[in-house]
Amino acid sequence: MSTHSGTGTKATRGLGIIVLLMLIALAFFGLVFSAEDVVQGSTVRIMYVHVPAIWVAYLAFGLTAVCSAVYLSGKNRSLAWDRVAGASGEIGVLFVAVSLVTGSLWGRLTWGTYWVWDARLTSTAFLFITYIGYLAVRRLGGTHRQRARRSSVLALLAIVEIPLVHFSVNMWRSLHQSASVADPNAKVQLDGLMLFSLFLGLFAFTLLFVWLVLHRQRTLQLEDAFADRGLDAAIAARREEAVK
C-alpha cells in the first residue's frame, strides 16, 4: 500500500487542473461570449450545464452497470470493479440532481412552473430515486463481498428496469391528452458559438466525471483497506485470546 496522503496522483492533479480551466472557459463561453437565443433569451444558457449534467449521469449509470457486470462475470471477482461501480453511481446521482434542479429552474423561466408532468422529466425523477435505492443497498453493511454482490445484481436490474419505466412514462404522456408543453430542444436554433459552448460543456463535464470517479474510487479503496486493517487487528487479537 502506498503511504502518500490524499487520493490524487500526478496524473489526476494534471487532469484536475485541465478540468478547472475548462470549466472556467465554459463559464465565459456560456455566460459571456455566446449569444442569447432568439426565442428563449438568456435562459438558453442553462442548457450548457443542464445537458452535460444529464449526459454525465447516463454515462455514470452506464459505467456502474458495466463494472457490475464485469464484477459478477470475472473469475476472481475483484472488488476494484465494485468500487468503481459504487463511485460512479454516487456521482451519477449527484449529476441527476444537478440536471433536475437546472431543468426545473429553466422550466420556471420558460413555462412559468418548476415542474410539469413531461415524460422526460418524470422518468428522470424515477432514475434519481432508483439510484438512491442503489446507494442505500450499498450501505446495508456486511462484508465487502456481500455488498458487492448485492449491489452489482441491483445495478444490472436497474439498467433493465429504467428503459421500461421510461417507455411506460412516454406511453402515458403520449396517449393521454395534456396541455401541450414546449419541447426544450425544438425551438433552439444553435449558432456556431452556442454549439461550441455546448460541446465544451459536454467535454468538460465528462473529464470532470473521470476526475471525480478516480478520486472517489480511491477513497472507497482506502475505506475498504481501513476496514480490512481493522479486521486484521481483530483476527490477531482473537488468535491471541485463543493461545492463552
Binding site: 424515477f126 430515486i129 432508483t130 443497498v137 446495508l140 417507455f167 411506460s168
Partner: peptide, 29 residues
Amino acid sequence: LAAGVRGRETLLPLLLLPVVAPVLIGATR
C-alpha cells in the same frame, strides 16, 4: 433482498415503488 438483511425491512418501499411505476400507469389506464 430486504428480508435478507435483518432490521432493514424499511428499505422495501424505496426499492419497490419506483420499479412498479409501469404497472401503476398501465393498470390504471
